[in-house]
């Protein structure tokens, strides 16, 4: 391991594996928050020679939102919907052990894909594409393989972490307006999903998406 970016990407990959095998909702939220801090730090570590004040405050904003605000928001939704106790009763579509095994296969796939994708020479780490793709796959897998709406929302946040990690490391600077717009959209998406989960729990008395099957055909 040579650069900080390499180490951060490695930690990101480890956090994905942890997310796939973790049963407790509280821990999943915590790990998703830590991932937010990791990709925020990646933004700072990726291009250390060209750090501007603008890049600094944008990275800080992203880090604060992904690392602190989202975990707080999702914890609040979990508390209000009594998600912790519900979590004990709801088994996911794919078990945690199997998820972990599938995760290793996804990692191998991400490595193979990453090797085929030529990136600009300025990319700080060879692990950027595999790490970002694996995080995206993990997020998508959680959206599909988990039954509870809150866990699916967390899957979306993790998917976004992967995309953000790829963006900051492989693309470098995108216009501040675009980055702010994307952050605002992400914030609104998590907020809308949080409110939706709250309303679904109120109406259905559960947030088991398997039982959201009134609309068919």
């Amino acid at each position: 391991m040579e650069s900080i970016a390499d180490r951060l990407m490695l930690l990101l990959i480890l956090s994905d594996l942890a997310l796939l095998g973790t049963r407790q909702l509280r821990r999943v939220i915590l790990i998703a928050g830590l991932q937010g801090i990791l990709v925020g730090a990646l933004a700072l570590a990726s291009h250390p020679g060209s750090l501007t004040a603008r890049a600094l405050w944008l990275a800080a904003l992203g880090l604060g939102m992904r690392g602190l605000l989202f975990p707080w928001l999702l914890r609040m939704v979990a508390r209000r919907t009594d998600a912790d106790s519900l979590d004990q009763r709801l088994q996911p579509y794919v078990g945690y052990g199997t998820s972990l095994l599938l995760g290793i296969a996804m990692l191998a796939g991400a490595m193979a894909l990453g090797a085929r994708l030529p990136l600009p020479a300025s990319t700080p780490s060879g692990l950027v594409v595999p790490g970002a793709l694996f995080t995206m796959f993990t997020g998508l897998f959680l959206v599909i393989a988990r039954r509870k709406a809150l866990r699916q929302c967390l899957g979306y946040v993790i998917l976004e972490n992967g995309i953000y990690g790829f963006g900051v490391a492989a693309v470098g600077e995108v216009p501040a307006l675009v980055e702010l717009g994307a952050l605002l959209d992400l914030f609104l998406a998590v907020l809308v999903m949080g409110v939706a989960i709250y309303r679904i729990t109120e109406e259905f008395d559960h947030m088991d998406t398997e039982k959201l099957d009134l609309l068919r055909g």
């Binding site: 709406a149 809308v192 959201l212 609309l215």
Partner: peptide, 10 residues
């Protein structure tokens, strides 16, 4: 409508 909204957003 809540079911449709959830599927739409997600």
């Amino acid at each position: 409508s809540l079911e449709a909204m959830w599927k739409y957003v997600l």
